[in-house]
């Protein structure tokens, strides 16, 4: 067990390292470079000065060397300076990370709960009316463009009904808990609706599979209470792989979060990455992308470990 955990953590670190290099390389291929952008905003800077500046910042060095320097600095907690925010990257990142966590975790939990209910109910009578309706809903969930879903929700609840705010994280001068909740409702609802479809399909498939198994059929035949069978036998056996798959879809969830945050003007990681790429804020984009990768890798790691922990059939030798 201990060896397995160590090995998986090791693998995760290796993947993170590889990804950091790839992302570093990709960012370097984006249009413009920091010095040129700086020079453009200051009239009268001569090309000689630009070249000198590039030399000072090491931008004329080969990629590997620049990456190495960046990595060494990053390992000591220095992620550079955000051009657009005029702050160290870490200070921009931290509140954004917190904001994204609120959005992702609350919508993830709500999705799981909704998917469990819908999945179980439809698995009880596959092909029945309830199952058909739930299936249609699940297909709608995996087929809907998230940004459009957000638009429809804004049109309905903010523009037409005036129930909820369409954007931002709090009202100026308020910012109390309820105010924040009101601002978070539509983003969470969007992300939750978008994810529940896929989750429901997982739960339904796993439940049908489990309810077909002999020991469950035996329990039915012995006249055990139907719900007891479903909960005690079915759920316990179906749940482990399902939760794992759900945790593995954290990457998708993050993609959804990016769209949602952009639509609702929430200052989270997704919107921050999006804005930083749009405005050529390289340091911020690089760190943001790495953190996003780290979050998904960690959730995968957690899912793997939980799976090995919960399922006695998997030996972790």
């Amino acid at each position: 067990m201990f060896g397995f955990v160590l090995r998986r953590i090791g693998q995760t670190l290796v993947v993170l390292l590889i990804m950091s290099f790839i992302i570093y390389g990709l960012i370097g291929l984006m249009p413009g470079d920091p010095i040129d952008i700086m020079a453009a905003s200051m009239p009268g800077v001569t090309p000689e000065v630009v070249a000198k500046l590039k030399a000072i910042y090491g931008l004329d060095q080969p990629l590997m060397l620049r990456y190495w320097r960046w990595l060494m600095a990053a390992l000591q907690g220095d992620l550079g300076f955000s051009r657009t925010h005029s702050q160290p990257v870490l200070e921009v990142l931290t509140p954004a990370l917190w904001q994204t966590c609120k959005l992702m975790i609350s919508s993830f939990v709500l999705s799981v709960v909704a998917a469990l209910i819908l999945g179980i109910v439809s698995a009880l009578r596959p092909g029945g009316l309830v199952d058909s309706v739930v299936s249609l809903f699940a297909f709608a969930g995996i087929s809907v463009p998230v940004f459009w879903l957000a638009l429809v929700l804004i049109l309905t609840f903010a523009v037409a009904l005036h129930w909820l705010p369409a954007s931002g994280m709090s009202n100026v001068g308020d910012g109390g808990f309820m105010d924040q909740v009101r601002h978070l409702t539509l983003p969470v609802l969007t992300l939750m609706l978008a994810n529940t479809g896929q989750f429901t399909r997982y739960v339904r498939a796993a439940m049908i599979e489990t309810l077909r198994m002999d020991f469950v059929r035996t329990a039915w035949a012995k006249g055990a209470d139907a719900w007891r069978v479903v909960i005690v036998h079915g759920l316990r056996n179906a749940l482990i792989p399902v939760v794992t798959i759900m945790a593995l879809s954290f990457g998708t969830l993050f993609s959804g979060a990016l769209v949602t945050e952009t639509m609702f003007a929430q200052q989270g990681m997704g919107k921050m990455i999006y804005d930083s790429i749009l405005s050529n804020d390289f340091n911020l984009a690089l760190s943001g992308l790495l953190f996003a990768t780290l979050i998904t890798l960690l959730s995968n790691l957690a899912a793997d470990l939980a799976y090995g922990w919960l399922d006695p059939r998997i030996s972790l030798g």
Binding site: M19, L26, P31, L258, I277, A285, G288, L289
Partner: peptide, 20 residues
């Protein structure tokens, strides 16, 4: 599979083709 694909796609879409 594990990667957050959308941010990655945005970076790829933003690349400067002349640098390639």
């Amino acid at each position: 599979i594990a990667l957050p694909l959308l941010p990655l796609l945005i970076v790829l879409a933003a690349l400067d083709l002349t640098k390639l």
